[in-house]
Write a protein that binds this DNA or RNA. Structure first.
Lengths: 336, 336
DNA sequence: TTGTACGCGTTATCAT
DNA sequence: ATGATAACGCGTACAA
């Protein structure tokens, strides 16, 4: 608990027998410094254990070299067995680390947390804010952007003013490929377990399903879940209840698809003989489900890395496109 | 992307027709300000959307009002289905939020990440650092403490200089109660699946097992896991291999205990008829396992809250005890 | 009760 | 190549 004095630039300068300016140059890697002096300064830095004061530095540079990643969820949900957030975090973290930026993780399930995040960012604690997912018409991204803070979202925001740049995957394309695969393989009563309709991912995947079925002139059957395994179980039961003869189901997330698999087994249905199942995500575990899950792969890690890269560009003052859409891909295994 | 000028104290002062000092007083809630002036200032603050610059403020106050929570793990592990970290994070987060401090989450699985954390903290980005778990003789807590940065650990650190205050649970007591329960109910060949031996939690739980069995003059049988479900499965298989006649097993974590349950079923053993199983943690899911798990409850959420409270005291300059040890409790259900 | 003036530790501009 | 010196935006003695 020795609240020992932290050495300042001044102290290092005295010890090395130079001016503050020179020490600053050395610390920041300027090339216009004589080798001998540089060495003396570095020695003094080491001996004193000098580390630049971030507040003082930020005050003049207007930068903090750290980026906030906002998870608009409670810790409960972030740390559930859903692997979406971990993958995003890992992707963002890797790219940021490579750029020598610090990642500041913030969870804001509550309204109050929301406000805290806004103040935190506006106060200049971070150089930019990455949103890992958006619920409904969350005003926060727009509010921050309006303040001149670099913002980027994962998934197209539902609000539009000001437009906030985003990175997303081709939900509709992936779903269309999945549903077409079902149709091509002879399925005719194709239901869906949709995701939450307050999130763009949920909405667009449902739209992909609806659009493709309509184009094929086939009937629609929709039940909504919330991306969790439990909701998948409940939704599958509801579907079987409403149409015992359905022969396929497109499920908007792998986790829900696993739930659906469980419910189908419980109901005595064979997969894929009786009912074909296709998920969305392509989590690692989906390769080992029983049967292995046919699913639409979305590149979540790549999405995280892209988010970070776009953020770094923004911070750097570069122009970036309003959206980057990553491709999805149908992975055919045994369930459909 | 409008990098609009952020209003400063000066701007607010001009608008409100007062001095900077007065605005500062209002913003920081000083009582020695006339009501009418306070109102005028607040109006100016709102109109301009003024938010104090954190860097400038920190520079003079030497505080940032944020606390780092270090998870010395990779994102993989933090976001696995182990519910230890989520519970800690929630506990720390709640208490910090109540104190109006911001939680900064940092994962440092790698060596480089370790170094980044040190610089981050020493640079004064946060007022204090909470460690959510410690591996081996991690020098980081000590290094930070030596720098005069408030530090507190979850679990007794294995290094001792300088001593870093910690919050822990009574591992040995809980384990002893569990093992005695097994002995009392007639078990004689009591094995254990221990936790990783580079962590105090793993070491002390094993010590509790060993000590109790020795005192009772019973044989020991130890296999080590890493707290994951998979390692529990493997360890249980190994135990059955080494002693097919064992009649009880104390498992150092609930997750591993669930793995053990699976392996026992796979081997055709009845629980608890053939083999009694006791876990450690008392996660919610353990109430619903088959059979419901007898386990040692450790108050993880309370641990998180205590960590935060102690940290707040440290930041406040108060003295705190070198350790706080929370009680554990044997929860008897059906598996033993 | 309000204002003046100084200092927090850096970086950056300008001389030298 | 190096050294004064002026910001950066704020809190707070101290003075009024």
């Amino acid at each position: 608990m020795t609240t020992r004095e932290r050495p300042t630039l001044e102290a290092v300068a005295r010890r090395a027998g130079v001016s503050r300016a020179t020490v600053s140059r050395v610390v920041n890697g300027s090339t216009t410094v004589a080798a001998t002096i540089r060495e003396a300064v570095n020695r003094a830095v080491d001996e004193l254990g000098y580390v630049p004061n971030q507040a003082a530095r930020s005050l003049v540079t207007q930068r903090t070299d750290s980026v906030a990643l906002i998870l608009p969820e409670t810790a409960n949900r972030v740390f559930s067995d859903d692997l979406f957030f971990p993958a995003i975090i890992r992707g963002v973290g890797m790219e940021l680390e490579a750029a020598d930026k610090q990642l500041v993780l913030m969870m804001t399930g509550s309204e109050a947390g929301h406000h805290r995040v806004e103040r935190y960012a506006v106060a200049g604690h971070v150089d930019g804010v990455v949103f890992a997912s958006i619920h409904g018409a969350d005003p926060l991204p727009g509010a921050l952007a309006r303040r001149g803070i670099p913002v980027i979202c994962s998934g197209r925001p539902m609000t539009a003013e000001p437009p906030v740049p985003y990175v997303d995957v081709d939900h509709a394309g992936g779903v269309a490929a999945a549903v077409r695969h079902l149709i091509t393989t002879g399925r005719r009563r194709i239901a869906t377990i949709a995701g939450p309709q307050d999130m763009v991912a949920g909405i667009e995947r449902l739209a992909g399903y609806t659009g493709t079925l309509r184009a094929a002139g086939l009937p629609e059957l929709v039940v909504t879940g919330d991306f969790t395994r439990e909701s998948g179980i409940a939704a599958m039961r509801a579907l079987l209840d409403r149409d015992p003869d359905l022969d396929a189901v497109f499920v908007a997330s792998d986790l829900m698809a696993h739930g659906a698999l469980m419910a189908l087994r419980e109901a005595g249905r064979q997969v894929p003989a009786d009912v074909a199942v296709i998920g969305f995500d392509d989590f690692e575990i989906s390769r080992y489900s029983d049967p292995p899950l046919t699913t639409v792969r979305q590149p979540i890690g790549e999405m995280g890395r892209t988010l970070a890269r776009q953020m770094l560009l923004l911070i750097n003052g570069d122009e970036i496109p309003e959206s980057v859409v990553l491709p999805t891909e149908l992975i055919v295994r045994d369930s459909a």
